[in-house]
Design a protein around this nucleic acid. Structure first.
Lengths: 329, 329
DNA sequence: CTGTTAGCGCCTTCAG
DNA sequence: CTGAAGGCGCTAACAG
């Protein structure tokens, strides 16, 4: 393995000089800098990130903490995009990234979790899909032991940022569009679950919309489950004009029910899953770019690592009309 | 951060003694061992894997190299299961795991890739979905610079093992079952693509079956694409008795076409994706447990790391009749 | 601007 | 069976 020492020798300079060049520090003349870079290229040198992490406590090791299988495996698509977006951005930013699933740390105490991450020299954690029920993880967040970026959870602190689309606004937008396109005032709203912050924000959006426009709304919780959404639709859709769902999967459930009931009601979803194409029908939805969200989260982490204060970053969303064949290839 | 030094002090022994009990080496009396373990527990000590990796060159850092988006994002389900199975098993085996996507190393030379992995102290790589076209990656494999486990690719060498289900046999099994259940001799086989080893094995299975049983078979390549499978079905299904597909996604495409053509033909797939439930029809398929495959790959990696010779590991498969509502909840 | 030096936390001989 | 000492590759003061 070619090390920084080899490069130094090859370029005829000191180790620390190479280190400076590699890390882009100032205090190296252009001439020696060029020499060093030349040597690096010739030897095909890649700095050992492990050693760097050991040596400096701020080598940028971060963990992606994913709450998988929250609702159904059908949303792997989301997780995969989160992962891929995050991993790519991390590599771009030269951050060393570790993937961890919630299940790997469940029934551990905060102390154990903190120790474990510290032992891996992890200084930042990006948390996806944190819910109100995740007590221990909330302790982790509040311990302020790590820089933390929360995705879709509205909480910030000194070392904690929040990143995500404006669920409230997005939900209002897509619902309003669907209602206007189809007329009617009576809405069946199938919400996510009571422990999800995103679901809560969406519900608030609906309440505000209903209030402002004078619609009527019946709210039921579908818990992000297709089947539950289906049952709810069976039970309540008949005398409603529009069915608004807090997720695409629930929207699919609703559409299936409508088909079986052989009645038509406009349905709108949220997320923009490709999977949704399998519903085989058109509907409005909020198209979220999960990879972009994740990339933004990594960037925000970078910002925190560099000493930035925790803040709230809102990403744009867009309404889309999705249709089979548009999306599947 | 509590270090090995703290533990040593707390237990009143030397650092190296602690190291020995942590790593399960012999040469420590039961008495001191107990003392050390006690201290470890009290201090909540977790060994710093970064330092361990730096210090000993065999600290078990491995990379999961995933070929994402090979065909369509609809198979994220597979990748996710691979990932989760691998990550969990790695943690169980105390291996430090890094996730990498093909896209992150594309258009790099082997040398660059090797350097990069070496720089991260990675000693083993698990490769998913390697195809015949991945020239550079094949050079990586053949360089023997790392321990490598190939998933679903039949190649072994000194430091290279192969793990996966017996695609040939599995394809024969599910096709034969479907044919017997429905009668008929004329088969339309929609194969994967020409660069996939798994697809090749499946095709061989079909050829052997056809040969042995005296069936007739027309083979077309659907390239793992739903749309292509659909078009192929439109074009050729009419005068066939059974449609056998090399993947579930293609099976879905075939079924859609049949529905549009308003004719019935039994279809069988391969993989056992939950997504398949969305086809809304029953069909036979091979249910692969991707998480288990991945876990097996990690175990095999462990075996290689401990000095085992490359070999071929075959995992069991099972035929399943899948149906909507059985699977979606 | 460049080189020297002391660690980071752990592993690993090698004496005792 | 136990402990002391020398690194792994790199960073970060601190001298020169």
């Amino acid at each position: 393995m070619v090390s920084i020492k080899d490069v130094a020798k090859h370029a005829g300079v000191a180790i620390s000089t190479v280190s400076k060049v590699v890390n882009g520090y100032s205090g190296v003349s252009e001439a020696t800098k060029a020499k060093v870079q030349e040597a690096i290229r010739e030897l095909n040198f890649v700095p050992n990130s492990i050693a760097a992490a050991l040596s400096s406590k701020k080598a940028g090791r971060i963990a992606l903490l994913l709450n998988m299988n929250m609702h159904t495996t059908a949303i792997d698509e989301m997780d995969m995009q989160y992962l891929s977006g995050g991993i790519h951005k991390a590599q771009e930013q030269h951050l060393d990234l570790v993937t961890v699933f919630f299940s790997m740390i469940q029934d551990k105490t905060v102390e154990e979790i903190i120790q474990r991450f510290k032992a891996q020299n992890i200084e930042g954690i990006i948390l996806y899909g944190l819910s109100k029920k995740d007590k221990v993880l909330w302790q982790l967040v509040e311990s302020e032991e790590f820089k933390i970026v929360l995705v879709d959870v509205p909480y910030t602190a000194e070392h904690t940022s929040s990143v995500g689309v404006d669920h409230k606004q997005a939900q209002m937008d897509v619902a309003q569009r669907t209602i206007l396109e189809n007329k009617g005032k009576k809405i069946l709203y199938i919400a996510g679950d009571r422990n999800s912050y995103a679901a809560e924000a969406k519900l608030q959006g609906m309440e505000e919309l209903v209030e402002k426009k004078g619609y009527q709304m019946l709210v039921r919780y579908g818990d992000f489950s297709e089947r539950k959404a289906r049952n709810i639709t069976f039970q309540y859709a008949k005398n409603k004009d529009v069915i608004v769902c807090g997720s695409d999967l629930m929207a699919i459930g609703a559409m299936r029910a409508l088909i079986e009931m052989d009645i038509f009601r406009p349905v709108c979803g949220f997320d923009g899953l490709i999977l949704m194409g399998y519903a085989g029908k058109q509907m409005n939805t909020i198209r979220q770019d999960f990879a972009a969200v994740s990339a933004a989260a990594v960037e925000e982490m970078q910002y925190l690592l560099q000493g930035g204060k925790g803040r709230c970053v809102t990403l744009p969303h867009k309404i889309e009309r999705m249709k089979y064949l548009d999306i599947i290839c």
